[in-house]
Amino acid sequence: MATTTNTNNYKFNHSMLRVKDPKESVKFYEFLGMSVVKKLSFPEAKFDLYFLSYDGPSALSRGNSTFDREGVIELTHNYGTESDPNYRINNGNAEPHRGFGHVCISVDHIQAACKRIEDAGYKFQKKLADGRMKNIAFALDPDGYWVEIISKKIGSKGADDPEEEGKETDPRTYRMNHTMIRVKDAEKSLKFYQEVLGMTLFRTVEQSAAKFNLYFLGYPGSKGMPEGGFTADYEGLLELTWNYGTEKDENFKYHDGNSEPQGFGHICVSVDNLDAACSRFETMNCNWKKRLTDGRMRNVAFLLDPDGYWVEIVQNERFAGKENF
Rank of each mutant, 00 (worst) to 15 (best):
E187L: 11
D68H: 10
E235V: 15
L303Y: 11
T204R: 15
S222Q: 14
T173M: 07
R132M: 07
M16Y: 00
A186I: 13
T66S: 05
V36M: 04
D143Q: 03
S25R: 00
M133N: 11
S151V: 11
M176Y: 14
I150C: 13
V314N: 10
G221H: 05
E227R: 10
V147T: 15
H77L: 01
F252P: 00
G198S: 06
S279T: 11
L238W: 09
D256H: 07
D256R: 09
M297Y: 12
K115M: 07
N316S: 14
V19M: 01
S270H: 11
R62E: 14
V26K: 06
N78H: 15
I313S: 00
E235F: 02
V19T: 06
L303S: 10
S25G: 02
N251A: 15
D160N: 14
D185Q: 08
Y193F: 15
A94I: 15
F138V: 08
K20C: 07
P171A: 09
N78F: 15
V311F: 05
S106Q: 03
I150Y: 05
S83A: 14
L240K: 05
G158A: 01
G265T: 05
Y145F: 14
Y145H: 10
V300D: 05
R98D: 02
H102P: 02
T246K: 14
G33I: 06
D233G: 06
E95D: 15
Y234M: 03
G228T: 04
L52H: 05
G131E: 01
G265W: 07
V183Y: 06
G71A: 03
C286P: 06
N90V: 06
C104N: 13
E227V: 06
Y79N: 09
V37I: 15
F138S: 02
K253M: 10
N9V: 05
G198H: 07
F12N: 13
Y219E: 08
S270A: 14
P261Y: 04
D21Y: 04
R116I: 01
I154N: 10
L274M: 05
P162E: 07
G144P: 08
G218R: 01
K126N: 01
M180P: 05
P171N: 06
T200A: 11
I154E: 14
R132A: 11
L40P: 00
L32D: 10
Y244R: 03
G257R: 02
V19Y: 13
E187W: 03
L140C: 07
W310A: 13
T293M: 09
L60G: 02
P226S: 06
G144W: 09
R203L: 12
D143W: 12
T246G: 00
Y50I: 02
T246Q: 12
F31I: 01
F28H: 02
L32E: 05
L238T: 06
D307N: 14
L292S: 11
E74T: 03
A276L: 04
I150D: 12
E317N: 04
K134H: 13
E195W: 05
E323S: 14
E323G: 08
A2K: 09
M16I: 02
N324M: 13
A112H: 09
F100W: 09
F212G: 07
E163C: 01
E70V: 15
Q262C: 02
E312C: 03
T5W: 04
N93W: 12
G121I: 12
V103C: 05
T66F: 13
Q262V: 15
P22L: 06
K134I: 04
M34T: 01
K134F: 03
L128P: 06
E195P: 03
E74A: 06
